[in-house]
Each structure stands twice: as structure tokens, then as C-alpha cells.
């Protein structure tokens, strides 16, 4: 299946997930499983880098809703970074920027995490 993939990195103890391709009802379960595993391992600082993501539907938005409460309840966050304008319009359409910390760049998200812990 080539229409969606992720890569995982760690920067300054922050887990970064790079998204590539198309996040729809077919591919969203892949990401849900991956974030679910991180949350279960106790990971509290997650940045999702959207730079390589070409498309998102409501099923993709739903993945972040599944975990945000649990991770914030224990003092962590999932920050969303580097969205293309098209992908941001889908978040913006329904007011998701009210709930999620969406930053222009990955570095901005890293700074927010490190500022919060110092």
C-alpha cells in the first residue's frame, strides 16, 4: 500500500512522526495504531510533521481526537506541524485550531515543548 506511510524520529526526547501521502478512512487506522502504541508506551511529547501529507479527510482528523485527551490528562501533548495550506483548510473548516496546537514549522513545535519543560 503506497498511498500512506510514516517515518519515526526522536529529537530532544520528542517523538516525531512524519506523514506522507493520503490520510483517509482507509489509511487512518495505520496512524491510529502507531500513535496508540506510542501513547501506551507512555510517550508524552509527540509532534506530527505534515510536510509530506497531500490529503486529509475527517477520518484523519479523528485519529488525533482519539488520543489528545489522554495525553493531555497526563501533562503531554500532540502538536501538529508544517501543514500544507490545503491540509490546514480541512482542520480550519471545523475549528480544529481551537483544540490543537498547530505550528508553522517542526522547530516551532520543538521550541514549545522544550519551553514547557524548562
Amino acid at each position: 500500500m503506497a498511498d500512506f506511510s510514516t517515518t519515526h524520529r526522536t529529537v530532544q526526547s520528542i517523538h516525531i512522526i512524519d506523514l506522507n501521502g493520503y490520510l483517509d478512512a482507509h489509511t487512518a487506522p495505520i496512524l491510529e495504531k502507531e500513535i496508540g502504541a506510542l501513547v501506551e508506551q507512555g510517550m508524552n511529547a509527540i509532534i506530527v510533521n505534515f510536510r509530506g501529507l497531500d490529503y486529509i479527510s475527517s477520518a484523519g482528523l479523528g485519529v488525533f481526537m482519539v488520543f489528545i485527551e489522554q495525553i493531555r490528562d497526563r501533562g503531554g501533548d500532540i502538536k501538529l506541524a508544517a501543514m500544507t495550506e490545503k491540509v490546514f483548510t480541512v482542520f480550519d473548516l471545523l475549528g480544529f485550531p481551537m483544540l490543537f496546537d498547530i505550528t508553522d514549522t517542526e522547530d516551532d513545535a520543538i521550541v514549545k515543548f522544550t519551553a514547557a519543560t524548562t
Binding site: S57, S58, G62, V63
Partner: peptide, 9 residues
């Protein structure tokens, strides 16, 4: 909540 936003979109 999650899900149920498709029609709204």
C-alpha cells in the same frame, strides 16, 4: 468526541 463530521464537511 471523534467521528461524525463527514456530513458537516
Amino acid at each position: 468526541r471523534h467521528g461524525g463530521l463527514g456530513v458537516h464537511i
